[in-house]
Amino acid sequence: MTTRFKEALNSGQFVITSEIGPPKGTNIEKMFHHIDLLKDKVVAMNVTDHQSSVMRFPSIGGCLAIKERGGEPILQMTCRDRNRLALQAELLFAYTRGVGNVLCLTGDAVPVGDHKEAKGVFDLDSSQLLRTIRQLESGKDLGGNDLDGAVEFCAGAIVTPEADPIKPQLLKFEKKIESGAEFFQTQAIYDLENFAKFMTYARKFPVKILAGIVLLTSARMAKYMTENVPGIFVPQNLIDELAAAPKGEALNKGIEIAGRMIAALKKDSVCDGVHVMAIGREELVPDILAAAGL
């Protein structure tokens, strides 16, 4: 199945994706609201998979909701919570329900989340999960057994252009491509010059790259991210810009910065699109896109 997302990636258009965070609980109205708000404004929506190892409504459940409401889902699958049997089973299920895009991730470590005593599975890693998808597409499972009906997915992965050190990260990036990744959504980037350098390198490979745009909501949050979140670097001039915003205006400044970055990436065709993550503020994504002139 060639998905709408894959068609958009191959059309040469600047592809916008965004992210839906499922609820912790059964009140799914807010998630439905976010889906309805974004489904016509972005090409596809990722649904996070127990993001930051915090137990939530499942990614596949969010993807089905997106399908039912006329949107295009990207199923995020981490290797933290399921062994190879469970991962393959979910891929079979996703395919039969028309969920045709998968983002393969290793998954955050268990101790960073809210079930700190749980067993981290990591039976597979992200490269191995990508290969698992390609194996299932060939009509066989990981055990080499014949499938009664195969799958077909548009499969992608993530890359961290600001990783420090960068060389091991790029080696893994290339391994993911060899394992079958067709697209990459990057960790948040803020230093466009450094990202352009990464893209000069990444353009050598036959994959589509969507730059990760995470909304900065305050100077404090920006500073926290750059100091504490692996692979995120917020340049000082952006922190200063947020700090200089009048009282109560930092969020609007953050929206303006995100919009400005998206516009710059699009204008210079730096990459193939952007993946906008508003982390709990999904209702602001249309404002970010408007600020980008989209």
Binding site: P168, K172, G231
Partner: peptide, 13 residues
């Protein structure tokens, strides 16, 4: 920590 066999995860810093 994750016992990965194909290189680092994104949590390395």
């Amino acid at each position: 920590h994750k016992g990965l066999l194909n290189g680092p995860c994104g949590g390395t810093n």
